[in-house]
Each structure stands twice: as structure tokens, then as C-alpha cells.
Design a protein around this nucleic acid. Sequence first.
DNA 1: ATTTATCTTGACAAATTATGTCAAAATTAT
DNA 2: ATAATTTTGACATAATTTGTCAAGATAAAT
Lengths: 105, 105
Amino acid sequence: MKTTGEIIRERREKKGLLLRQLAAQLDIDAAILSKIERSDRKDTKEQISKIADILGLNKKKLIIQYLSEKIAYEIADEESAKQVLKVAEKKVDYLKRNQNDTRKH
Amino acid sequence: MKTTGEIIRERREKKGLLLRQLAAQLDIDAAILSKIERSDRKDTKEQISKIADILGLNKKKLIIQYLSEKIAYEIADEESAKQVLKVAEKKVDYLKRNQNDTRKH
DNA sequence: ATTTATCTTGACAAATTATGTCAAAATTAT
DNA sequence: ATAATTTTGACATAATTTGTCAAGATAAAT
């Protein structure tokens, strides 16, 4: 199962881009990009979006990949991780049905 | 669909505890507890755990409730929210299978 | 084998977000 | 109306995230 970082690295290398070249386009230090590709640091959603643009990756897919990874790590060490996701699904449904409620979060 | 805050408030009131009394036991300001119960502020996992103890709520359930709520809000405004959860489930499975790998996150 | 380019790592800095305190305003109960 | 409780918002402090930089490690080229 590939990590977001691995996907990015593979694509970057296929395109023949250097770390520092992609980093420059993203306007971040190459050190950070290196860490992102090695799953040492999380990237921001903005960066993911830019990366998809630059590397010509399917943006929607990459964002799904990125968010699901974030969530998975958030709860992976919970014994009830899967139940958490089940309940979260119900809650998402509920929230989506009541999108224009007045409450703040 | 009840929020974590609502669950806490209902139980607290059933037990006849005042905000400041429960807050004192949690060692936080009553203002924060008020906000937690009104979903204005997230509580920490530690607090959830203490609250379950004090109010005699099922700790496992309350933590599932709390984590799923956190996740739901995290992705509720994503159009692909449900796919994200599906993929997250796979990733959790994967992570749980390889618990003793060497990588850091 | 040595030099050069690329990538990785860790210590630190800046920025952002989370968590908490306090006091005054609003609400509810007496 | 008074007193008790809860709510709100401005602000302070703490924790986490995100970034920079420079030195070390690895790989590629000569």
C-alpha cells in the first residue's frame, strides 16, 4: 500500500524533476519536500493541491489519499479504530444533510 | 444525532452536578466545560477519559463518539468525505497488520 | 578515487492552532 | 429583585506545525 509520499516521489522522478526543482515550484525548502516524500512530515492540503497540478496527478484522488492517510494515522493505535470510522460515516451523512445549520464548530 | 457535548451535559445534569463542580473535578475552568458541552471547543482525549470516569459513562463508547466527531468535522466539507473514510478503513487495516514495522510517522 | 550534485537529517525559528484564565454579560432559579 | 449558574469574548500561555538553514550521507559523474 503506497503512501502519499511514495506516490509523489515516483511521479516526480518519472517527470525527471529534482527535489529542489519541485520544491521551488511549491515555494518550500527542499528539505521539507524530502521529508514529505519520506512520510516524515505531513504536507498541507494546499501543497497537495499544488503538487497534483504540477505533476499532473488526479487532484481529487490525491486529496482522498492524503486525507485518508491523515485520519488512518490519527486513529491507528486505537483498538476501536474501525468502529470510529463507522460512526464517523454516520456523522458525515448527518452533517451533510444539515449543511445549513447555524451552529459553529 | 447527539454530540459529545450533549451526552456529557445530559449525564452531568442527571447526576445533579453543576458545571463548576464537574469542571473542578476535571481541573479546568467552568468556562471551558461550558464550551465543550456546547461544541464550541473540542476537549482532549484525557478530559474525555476523566469525564467518563466521573460521570460513569462507558469510556470506550465515549471515546468512539469523540474521535468520530472529530474526524467527521475534519472532512465534512469535502465532497469526497465518504470515499476518504472508505480508504482510511483500508489503511487502518493495513497499519494494524504491520504494527511492528520500523518506520516513524 | 575524488569531485560534484542530490538528498537527508537534526537543531533551531517563526507561525499557527489549541488550551486555559478571567471578568463581565446573559440566563435561570429562588 | 436577588442570587446562583452559565455563557461569552478578550486575552495569555502552551503545544504543535511548518519552515529555514547548514552539515552529513548518499549517489552519480569524471
